[in-house]
Write a protein that binds this DNA or RNA. Structure first.
Length: 159
DNA sequence: GCCAACGTTGGC
DNA sequence: GCCAACGTTGGC
């Protein structure tokens, strides 16, 4: 029997790839992750059907912009093999790609971004990783209750 | 643009 | 294996 659905938060700089981009193109390969802990979450723990909070980092304001869903489990991130890619890693080979990515599909864009600021003011979210000081992991597990809370706030944000 | 916090690298 | 130096992330 399949394990139950898990919940995640994934960061993207909207100047590079935003929730608008995901909405328009419906799905994407989450390439460019170059951190082992983040990779391991994708490779070992993410499964098709898992839900994702799409977080805009380096944005004004930073925050959760919408929801996505994992639609393909981890597979090699070929951008590591491409010398022209900003994500090129000379250590990567076809036999040992080192870096992995999952594919995600668009689910929902909130009317307005749920700002990090707002998340920090929610008592119920005080243990969420993303609100912890110095937390820069770009792929994070999220508790279901936290996911539901952020989604509820997002649906009522007017922007 | 600043810089604190964090992750990685490499000399020893 | 330690840890200083360096590079990156990402909020502010």
């Amino acid at each position: 029997m399949a394990r139950s659905r898990r919940y995640w938060l994934m960061k993207s700089e909207p100047d590079v790839f935003s929730i608008d981009d995901l909405r328009k193109q419906k799905r994407t390969s989450w390439d460019g992750v170059r951190n082992y802990q983040a990779r391991n979450f994708m490779r070992d723990d993410m499964q098709v059907g898992d839900m994702v909070l799409f977080y805009h980092s380096n944005a004004k304001p930073p925050g959760v912009a919408g929801i996505a869903r994992v639609c393909k489990a981890a597979h090699p991130d070929h951008t590591a093999l491409d010398p022209k890619s900003p994500y090129y890693d000379p250590r990567a080979t076809r036999d040992n790609p080192i870096w992995m990515m999952v594919d995600v599909e668009f689910v929902e864009q909130f009317p307005g971004v749920v700002a990090l600021d707002r998340l920090k003011r929610e008592r119920a979210l005080k243990d969420m990783l993303v609100v912890q000081r110095g937390m820069r992991l770009s792929v994070q597990p999220v508790e279901r209750a936290h996911f539901e809370r952020v989604a509820a706030i997002g649906k009522q944000e007017t922007g």
